[in-house]
């Protein structure tokens, strides 16, 4: 799991090749199959994914605990101006999170429900495709990683990400960090950042901080292992992903229904 600089560079090269391959895939596979996205799933041994069980998140505190767990350990600044906000995980309504999948007759309580939002660690990430310096890249385990020392701050990735998951440091973030965690590097002004699925914790054999603090509402694991917990949930529950029509193949799934969501 440990990735050093040499591997970073190799990896980023491999991402470029991977992109070329996926383009030819579209032509070799059946058209209908390709357009529906089923043929585009990763065949890597590991593809890290998250399942968010909305029904298990009940109180405001359930959400805040998850956000705080993430933002405190990653030195994510608290900036009041929404235009300059930096966020790795946050919440929004169903309407805003799944704008293409709404109808006027959803239960009112459901429409008020908050959904945790974060980087989807897409299997076909547009942000990686557009980055001019390979500062953002896809690891073999599916994590979309960001090299803060290579990023030139062009914000092409922000234009490309259809989920609004990327934050730019419009101002110096350091004065806005509530309690500094000296174990994790703060970012400098002028670079883009986002959720990393806690790669630093995974290396230590720990789960992502949000998952750990969620009391089982968030589940993390290997999507390409049929025996993994995430797969077991996906096999038995109805799940949604954000904006499936764009073909980005998100690795974050939302369990909708099956439990009382009115909490």
């Amino acid at each position: 799991m440990k990735i050093d600089r040499r591997k970073f560079l190799k990896l980023t090269g491999a991402t470029g090749i991977g992109l070329g391959l996926s383009a030819t895939d579209i032509f070799t596979k059946g058209t209908v199959e390709a357009s529906s996205g089923h043929s585009r799933v990763s065949t890597a041994a590991t593809r890290l994914a998250m399942v968010i069980n909305i029904g298990k998140l009940k109180t405001d505190d359930d959400y805040q605990r998850i956000i705080d767990a993430c933002h405190s350990i990653h030195n994510v600044p608290t900036i009041d101006n929404p235009k300059h906000e930096v966020k790795w995980i946050w919440t929004d309504t169903y309407k805003h999170s799944f704008p293409e999948q709404i109808n006027e007759y959803h239960p009112e309580a459901f429409m008020k429900k908050r959904f945790p939002l974060l980087c989807n660690h897409c299997d076909h990430p547009p942000c990686v495709r557009v980055c001019p310096t390979k500062a953002t890249f896809k690891r073999p385990d599916g994590i979309i990683q960001q090299d803060m020392h290579r990023c030139i701050g062009c914000r092409f990735c922000m234009a490309a990400c259809p989920y609004g998951s990327r934050s730019f440091n419009w101002i110096d973030p350091r004065p806005h960090i509530k309690e500094k965690n000296t174990e994790y590097p703060p970012r400098t002004m002028g670079v883009v950042e986002k959720c990393t699925f806690c790669n630093e914790r995974l290396e230590r054999g720990e789960e992502p901080a949000c998952v750990e603090s969620s009391n089982g509402a968030l589940v993390f694991g290997n999507l390409n292992d049929p025996e993994s917990e995430v797969r077991k949930i996906l096999n038995t529950h109805f799940t949604l992903r954000r904006k499936p029509s764009l073909g980005t193949m998100p690795s974050v799934f939302y369990v909708i229904g099956g439990e009382d969501y009115a909490g």
Binding site: P132, T133, K134
Partner: peptide, 16 residues
């Protein structure tokens, strides 16, 4: 428009 203009050469140092 660059957030880190001093790194702009990265575009050519790491051609993508």
């Amino acid at each position: 428009d660059m957030g880190q203009p001093m790194r702009i050469a990265n575009v050519f140092l790491y051609p993508t």
